[in-house]
Computed example of a mutant assay.
Amino acid sequence: MKYTCTFLLFLFVISAFTASAQSSYLLPEKFYLQKGEKLELHLLQSEDFNKQSDLKYLPAKTAKFILLQGKKPVDLKPMAKDTGKVVLSYNSPEAGTTLIDLVSTTEANEMSRSKFLRGLDEDDPDKIADKVKSSNQLYYKEKFTTYMKTLFINEKDGGSAFTKPLGDDYEIVIQQNPYKFNYGDDLSALVLFKGKPAVAAEVDMFVKTADGNTFPQKLSSDASGLIYFKLSREGIYILRSKHFEISKDKSADFESWRTTYTFAFSSNNELPNTYREFGLGNKH
């Protein structure tokens, strides 16, 4: 099968639990690579659909940056660029379905009590807000780690290495290859926290279509840590989730783990191939 569809950068609403929060994600310029093409990878951060920024790659904050296709992962850290645009230019990888995983750490981020509560009120499964409201503390520190995955194909859609957990503290593991599936097919993904199924984990899914529309859906993992969703529209898919706990580290009050996952789906492999055609403007 020939893959001719090219996807350039586009933007999702991927705020953590509030519209003012920001999330980071990986996005290749092309999810469908042809023979001999380079992989151009971007690291993005966003608040909403109208505001986006390229996120500079920070080697000192990068715990892991790998490409996984076969049995042995490729370490991408020596090849990465500390720029705010293309963070990686990688000569055409082996043919097949390819996963990239980047883990980024941060120091504790201090914020006011009111700002911290605004970020919790919308979605607070661990009832952190109740603990904050009962306290007189004025400022809080949050320490967080971000786990980013993106799945693309080069020439063909073979391989299943991406269906295996990578050992990240918080990760989403897609169980089937979306590039082999058809419109309306069901997919499942496993949500893991520190190697164990995350029960009742809330996962947001967004689909960005070629006409510029975005379709959100809220998912929740079952007792086995699995979420289920359909390939209901052609476009770019993003899954994102966040886990929050009271920190055991004295350098912060709370700790969070944030995970995002991007991939593309097209039933006929012929979607618009420019950033502008997705209704977002030609930034790059």
Score class of each variant (00 low, 15 high):
202 E>R: 03
27 L>D: 02
166 L>R: 11
247 S>Q: 05
182 N>T: 13
148 M>Q: 09
192 L>A: 09
248 K>Y: 07
271 L>A: 09
86 V>W: 00
37 E>Y: 13
5 C>K: 05
147 Y>G: 05
56 K>P: 01
87 V>M: 10
111 M>A: 10
57 Y>H: 05
203 V>S: 04
55 L>W: 07
37 E>G: 10
40 E>H: 09
40 E>L: 13
139 Y>H: 06
58 L>N: 05
31 F>G: 02
136 N>I: 12
198 A>I: 00
257 W>G: 02
249 D>G: 02
255 E>F: 03
142 E>M: 07
181 F>R: 08
193 F>V: 04
223 A>E: 15
187 L>R: 01
39 L>K: 06
195 G>W: 05
138 L>D: 04
280 L>P: 02
209 T>P: 01
239 L>W: 01
245 E>W: 11
237 Y>P: 01
143 K>G: 11
39 L>E: 05
128 I>W: 04
203 V>W: 02
189 A>Y: 00
220 S>L: 08
19 A>D: 12
136 N>F: 15
256 S>W: 10
24 S>W: 13
242 K>A: 04
12 F>P: 01
59 P>A: 08
262 T>G: 06
201 A>D: 06
18 T>P: 03
185 D>A: 09
178 P>S: 08
18 T>E: 15
196 K>P: 00
240 R>M: 11
66 I>T: 15
